[in-house]
Amino acid sequence: MHIHNLFAHMEAHTGQEQLDTLLSRPGLKIERIVSTGQASPPGFWYEQEQGEWLVLLAGEAKLVFEDEASPRDLLPGDFVDIPPKCRHRVEWTDPEVATVWLAVYYE
């Protein structure tokens, strides 16, 4: 058994989003995502087969769902459970401060 830290080994502003799988088991995956100004490309929507429980640990972001008129503003501590096949996109992440997400994907 090892102890790890969610805020360790975050890459400095590389221009790329950093994705790290923290745990993977059948029907379950936990991932840390570090964004530094990244957003979904125009017209792109996530539409995953599995559910996703998402919590914002640091930074700020805007998340939009296809069936909603405006994006949701996310601050540290905010979380959302996204059902399978729910179309959503990241509209904005803070370019000045690392936005750290914890995503739990489940069957």
Score class of each variant (00 low, 15 high):
Met10Pro: 00
Gln16Asp: 06
Ile33Met: 05
Asp20Asn: 11
Asp81Lys: 07
Arg87Val: 11
Leu74Met: 15
His13Ser: 11
Ala103Pro: 03
Phe44Tyr: 14
Gln48Trp: 11
Ile33Ala: 02
Leu102His: 05
Val64Ile: 11
Ala12Phe: 05
Leu22Ala: 06
Ser24Asp: 13
Met1Asp: 09
Pro76Leu: 10
Thr99Met: 03
Pro26Ala: 12
Ile33Asp: 00
Thr93Gly: 01
Asp20Ala: 10
Pro41Ser: 08
Asp67Arg: 12
Gln50Glu: 15
Ala58Ser: 14
Glu31Met: 13
Ile3Ser: 12
Gly15Lys: 00
Pro41Asp: 07
Gly43Ala: 13
Val90Trp: 08
Met10Asn: 08
Lys62Val: 15
Gly43Trp: 11
Val55Asn: 06
Glu11Gln: 06
Glu49Arg: 15
Pro95His: 13
Ala69Ile: 11
Gly77Asn: 09
Gly43His: 12
Glu11Pro: 01
Leu74Trp: 12
Ala103Gly: 10
Leu56His: 03
Pro84Arg: 12
Trp92Gln: 01
Ser35Leu: 07
Leu23Thr: 08
Thr99Gln: 03
Gly15Met: 01
Ala98Asn: 10
Gly27Lys: 10
Val80Thr: 11
Glu52Leu: 08
Lys62Met: 13
Pro41Met: 03
His4Ala: 11
Ala39Asn: 03
Ala12Ser: 14
Met1Gly: 13
Arg72Lys: 12
Glu31Tyr: 02
Ile82Arg: 03
Arg72His: 14
Trp53Ser: 05
Glu96Arg: 11
Gly51His: 05
Gly51Ile: 15
Tyr105Thr: 05
Ile82Met: 05
Gly77Gln: 11
Thr36Pro: 00
Asp67Tyr: 09
Gly43Cys: 08
Leu75Val: 15
Tyr105Arg: 09
Pro95Thr: 04
Lys85His: 15
Leu74Asn: 03
Tyr106Val: 07
Ile33His: 01
Leu23Met: 11
Glu91Ser: 14
Asp73Phe: 13
Glu47Ile: 04
Leu75Thr: 14
Ala69Gln: 15
Tyr105Cys: 06
Val34Thr: 03
Phe7Ser: 08
Val90Ala: 01
Gly59Thr: 06
Pro83Arg: 12
Glu66Cys: 03
Pro41Val: 00
Phe79Trp: 15
Glu31Ser: 05
Pro71Glu: 14
Thr99Ser: 14
Trp92Glu: 03
Glu66Gly: 01
Met10Asp: 07
Gln38Ile: 01
Arg25Gln: 12
Ser70Ala: 15
Ser40Asn: 05
Gly27Thr: 09
Ile30Asp: 02
Val97Tyr: 06
Gly15Pro: 00
Glu96Asn: 13
Gly43Ile: 07
Gly43Lys: 10
Glu107Trp: 10
Leu75Gln: 15
Glu96Gly: 11
Glu68Val: 04
Glu17Ile: 02
Leu23Pro: 04
Phe7Arg: 10
Trp101Arg: 00
Glu68Tyr: 07
Ser40Ile: 04
His88Pro: 00
Glu96Cys: 08
Asp73Trp: 07
Asp67Ser: 15
Glu66His: 09
Glu60Thr: 13
Asp78Ala: 13
Ile82Lys: 04
Leu22Trp: 09
Pro41Leu: 08
Val55Glu: 12
Tyr105Ile: 04
Ala69Cys: 06
Pro41Lys: 05
Asp20Trp: 04
Gln18Cys: 00
Ala69Arg: 12
Leu22Phe: 06
Ala12Asn: 09
Tyr106Gly: 03
Ala98Val: 02
His9Gly: 05
Lys29Glu: 13
Leu28Cys: 12
Ile30Glu: 04
Met10Val: 13
Gly37Ser: 00
